[in-house]
C-alpha cells in the first residue's frame, strides 16, 4: 500500500509538518512505499536557501535532501502553488516533481494523510 503524505502548511510555524516528515521517514524505514506531496503554502518547504538557525530550528530543506537516502519515493509539488509562490527550476530544491492535477494524484493512492 502506497501512502501519500500531503503537506499544505508552510514550514517552521508549527510542528505538524515535521511530524509528517517523521512519519514518512518511519514508513520508509520499514520499506513501506511513501511519497510526499506539497500543496498550497506547503510548497515553501521546497524553496532553496532556508536558514532557520535564527529561530532555533533545523532546516527542512536539508532534512528533505535526506528523504531519498531514507527511501522516500518521491517529492511532489502542485504546479499552481509553485507558480503562486514564485517557485521555479532556479529556486526549487533538487528532486521535486511538479504535478498539474492534484485531485487526480490524490486518487492514485490508497492511503492519503494530510499533515497536521
Amino acid at each position: 500500500m502506497h501512502t501519500l503524505i500531503v503537506i499544505d502548511q508552510p514550514p517552521y510555524g508549527s510542528w505538524g509538518g515535521r511530524e509528517s516528515l517523521d512519519m514518512a521517514f518511519s514508513l520508509a524505514a520499514f520499506d513501506q512505499p511513501v511519497s510526499l506531496l506539497f500543496i498550497d503554502a506547503g510548497v515553501l518547504w521546497l524553496k532553496q536557501g532556508q536558514e532557520p538557525g535564527g529561530i532555533n530550528q533545523k532546516s527542512v530543506e536539508r532534512n528533505l535532501a535526506a528523504a531519498s537516502i531514507f527511501g522516500v519515493e518521491s517529492l511532489l509539488a502542485d504546479t499552481a502553488a509553485c507558480h503562486r509562490f514564485g517557485l521555479n527550476e532556479d529556486n526549487l530544491i533538487n528532486g521535486v516533481t511538479r504535478i498539474d492535477n492534484t485531485g487526480a494524484t490524490l486518487q492514485q493512492y490508497q492511503h492519503v494523510a494530510f499533515s497536521g
Binding site: S26, K58, R62, N63, A65, F70
Partner: peptide, 22 residues
Amino acid sequence: DFYNEHEISPPSNRLFVKAVKE
C-alpha cells in the same frame, strides 16, 4: 558529515543502516 549536510541524525536504527548502505 551526514548531520552537517542534513541537520538530522538518522532517526532510527533501520534508517541508520540504510544511510550507511547508501
